[in-house]
Nucleic acid binder design. Structure first.
Lengths: 163, 163
DNA sequence: TATTAATCCATGCGATCCCATTAATACCCG
DNA sequence: CGGGTATTAATGGGATCGCATGGATTAATA
């Protein structure tokens, strides 16, 4: 498998270390792990975005779409690259979260790692629970928008289950 | 055969393991089994949805339509990827259901596997029975609406349940 | 030398693998 | 057609391995 999936919650120890979930580490390695995890504050959430090479390239891709020396590009560069930190994974699969990043996500005693395909996020467990339920109800709606969308078969309704 | 059909009920053992019905395992393999079963809480029922690669690609398909780094995409990703667990099937054809998933479906001592074509659901046997009988009476009604009703057809017991 | 960061080591719990047992079904042979 | 056997699936238990976690030790910096 080559994408980040599922959620895991790990503790932050006295030294500020957290274990990156083993499955995520596996993904990072396949992704051309170059000694570090790219990590930066999520633009629109109290969380941190992180990923490997693929994520880095994606960011590059976004910027390359904009004309050089444009205001927009400068702003975006700063927003995207400015706060990026490269976190190294130690021999035991742990990273240390710098104070700045911890603050942005309100991280304290534990971290919830959330797989999002080609990147993952780190949340304060409590906040994530809240966000998750929001996202969930939103999907209910989105789902209806997609309507008969791709593949009509068993889609319209999940087996008609209702209770 | 390449679709999940019928229902089977298996026990959860002391370690939280359940045997995936052999016919379902066969389908998963034909479906390009990549080492795991994708599983997540059903959106509108106290049950779990699960499937193989085909299901995973369907999820990807939903997201691929949205622009990277949009708020909408992030939210949808959380709901779709964040809730998904990749369950590995051990050498004996069993999976382990994580606590979170078990809770959502109210799973305790046994699991009823319900084939739904290109995915299947896992129910707490009691709840499923209830839902099934409801569904049945609904069909009765629908049939009357259609008027056609070649009466009595396959009424007895929509089979499957082994044991 | 004091302090902080990085590396190494130890441990407990949970997940995974392997093997044994039972039960149900298909198969073969008398 | 009946009896018996071989196979496959489900389940239970024991042993093993890996991961997350905590602490100690060493290296680096001021």
């Amino acid at each position: 498998m080559d994408r980040f999936v599922s959620t895991f919650t790990n503790k932050i120890d006295a030294k500020g270390r957290v274990s990156v979930p083993a499955p995520f580490r596996a993904v990072l390695e396949r992704d051309g792990y170059a000694g570090g995890v790219y990590c930066y504050p999520s633009l629109d959430a109290p969380a941190l975005d992180a990923g490997g090479e693929r994520l880095a390239q994606k960011i590059d891709g976004l910027l390359s779409g904009l004309p050089d020396y444009s205001d927009e590009r400068d702003q975006l560069s700063v927003a995207l690259y400015g706060d990026v930190q490269v976190l190294t994974i130690d021999g035991d699969g742990r990273i240390v979260l710098p104070e700045g990043l911890r603050a942005h996500a309100g991280l304290d005693a534990a971290v919830t790692f959330v797989g999002l395909g080609d990147k993952f996020q780190m949340w304060e467990p409590g906040r994530f629970e809240k966000r998750r339920s929001e996202a969930r109800s939103k999907v209910q709606v989105t789902r209806k928008l997609f309507g008969a969308g791709s593949r009509g078969a068993s889609d319209g309704d999940d087996g008609g289950a209702r209770e």
